[in-house]
Design a protein around this nucleic acid. Structure first.
Lengths: 126, 126
DNA sequence: CTGAGTGTTATACCGTTCGTATAACAGTAG
DNA sequence: CTACTGTTATACGAACGGTATAACACTCAG
């Protein structure tokens, strides 16, 4: 599982890790019940404190993407979470804000649809 | 120009103001060369410090959406900015992250396209 | 010219978040 | 027992968001 972090980004490191794991699950690089690196191992590999990795893992566990058990480690959930309040309350407004910004910058509607296709046409196994 | 702020949101107030102005421009509620409320007036109306409004206005000015001149106030730019590096470097990655999250939550592709239409079907005058 | 309105700049303060760091604790497997 | 897991608590420094006060510079109506 390859994973890189941009220390210069305004996006928090633990959020980058979280997104990267979700991305890997979506791409199929991480399959259900597959074991993730330990928080200490991944932290060491990324040059990041393991508490930062733990924060990302904890959030992923809270959201139902992975399961964590002390002594065993973390693994991808057997069945992935579906639409939940978080999507409606947080993701949708953020998307609309980005769409509006794109629109006011005269970005073509098809450009945005193409971005969706670009994401949805990638590997999809679960 | 109606404008509301959600103090409970994780999105910074000045960002909410910025987005709301962009939204108003996109909707046509704010037309080119139209004068915006002064930073003090809007701050007072929103129950927010005027420096917070100033921060939003300054960012909008940096991005080319409005112009500010001391003694005169702020007004919508005569010609709106087009696609710029900010869109490619910041907006696109954020969109992809949101799309990926939607995908992994088994949100239908059409749901996202519908959101785009919802934004693009609104008034558009400039 | 005066005064009231603009934006601009500087400084300070407080609370929260991010990331690091150290330490200790508790469960699992060889 | 040992070495690995995650878990919890605490602390520190840097950065950010928001408020607050003050002063400054410009514009325009009176």
């Amino acid at each position: 599982m390859e994973l890189t972090v941009d220390f210069a980004s305004t996006v928090p490191i633990y959020t980058q890790i979280r997104n990267a794991v979700i991305q890997a699950i979506a791409d199929g690089r991480l399959k259900s019940s597959e074991v993730l690196p330990s928080v200490r191992a991944l932290g060491s590999a990324l040059g990041v404190n393991y508490h930062t990795v733990n924060k990302a893992y904890t959030q992923l566990a809270d959201e139902g993407f992975i399961t964590m058990r002390r002594g065993l480690g973390a693994m991808v959930a057997e069945q992935l979470p579906a639409v939940d309040p978080h999507f409606e309350a947080e993701v949708v407004p953020q998307m609309k804000a980005l769409f509006t910004e794109a629109k006011v910058r005269t970005v073509d509607r098809q450009t945005l649809v193409a971005l969706i296709d670009q994401v949805y046409d990638e590997g999809w196994h679960h």
